[in-house]
Amino acid sequence: MSNTRKTASAADDSTGRSDSADLSLAGGLTLLRELFIKRFRIMLRYRVNFLAQMLASYLFFAVLFFGGQAAVGSVGGNQAITETLDGVIVGWFLYTMAQSAYSSLPGNVTQESEWGTLEQLYMSPYGFGPVMVTKVVVNIFQSFLVGALMLGLILLTTQRTLAIDVLTIVPVTLLALVSVVGIGFVFAGLALVYKRVESVSQLMQFVIVGLIAAPVAGLSPLRFLPLVQGSSMLQDAMRNGVRLWEFPAFDLGILVGVAAVYSLAGYAVFLVCSRVARRRGVMGHY
C-alpha cells in the first residue's frame, strides 16, 4: 500500500488543490456567493413552485383588495378604503417580506434535514452559526426581491403611487426584517431539536400581521416588539415621503436596538438548540 498521506500544506499543483482552507473574509464572501448561486439555481429548478408561491401571494392580495373595495363600495363607503389603501399596500409589502424572512430559516433547517445535507452544513470550518447567518443574508435578499416584485405588481394593479426612496426604504426594511429574523432563529433552533414545527410556526403569520398593524405612540411597549417600529417608519417613508435622516433619533435608535437585541437573542437560542440537538443525537434527523 502506498501511503502518500496528504497534509494541509502539501498542495499538488497538478491537481489545483489549495494549500489550506481560506477562512478569511474573502473565504466567507466566497461562501456567500456560492450560497447565492445555489439558492437561485435551486429556485430556478423549482421554478413552477416559486412562481406558484408568487401568484398565490398576489392573488391573495387581489382578493383582499378588490373584495374589500367591492364590499365597502356596495354600502357607499368607497372613500374609506381609498384612504387606507396606501397603508394596506405598504403593510402587505412588509408582510410578504417579513413572512419570507422569518419562515425561511426554520424552513431551511427542515428541508436540509430531509435532504440529508444539514449535517454537511454543520461540518463547515466556518462554523454552523456563521453558515446559517450567511444563509439568512441570502434569505433576506430573496425576501427583498420577492417583496419588490410584489410591490411593483400591486402598484400596477391598484394604480397607486408611493414614495420609493431606496436610501430610506432599504435600511428601514432591512432592520425591521432583521428583528423578525431573530424569531426565525428561535424556530430554526426548535426545528433542530423537535423537527416538525411548521404548525407552531404558521401561527406566527398572524402574529406578524398583528405586529405590522400595531400602533406606535410615545413610549408604548409595543415599539419594543419586532417589526412594530420598522412598520411604522416604513409607512411614514412610503406614504408621507419621510427620509431616513428626517426620523427622530429616538425612533432610529429603537429600530436599530430592537433589530440587534432580537437577532442576537434569537441567534443565541439557535446555538443553544443546536447543542441540545447534538447532545440528543438528533441533528440530522427529520
Binding site: 489545483g16 489550506s20 482552507a21 456567493r33 456560492e34 454537511q120 463547515s124 466556518y126
Partner: peptide
C-alpha cells in the same frame, strides 16, 4: 468545496 473553505474557481482541475 466552498463550504469547506476553498474557492471553487481555483479547484476546477481537482
Amino acid at each position: 468545496s466552498a463550504l469547506a473553505g476553498n474557492d471553487p474557481r481555483e479547484m476546477g482541475d481537482r
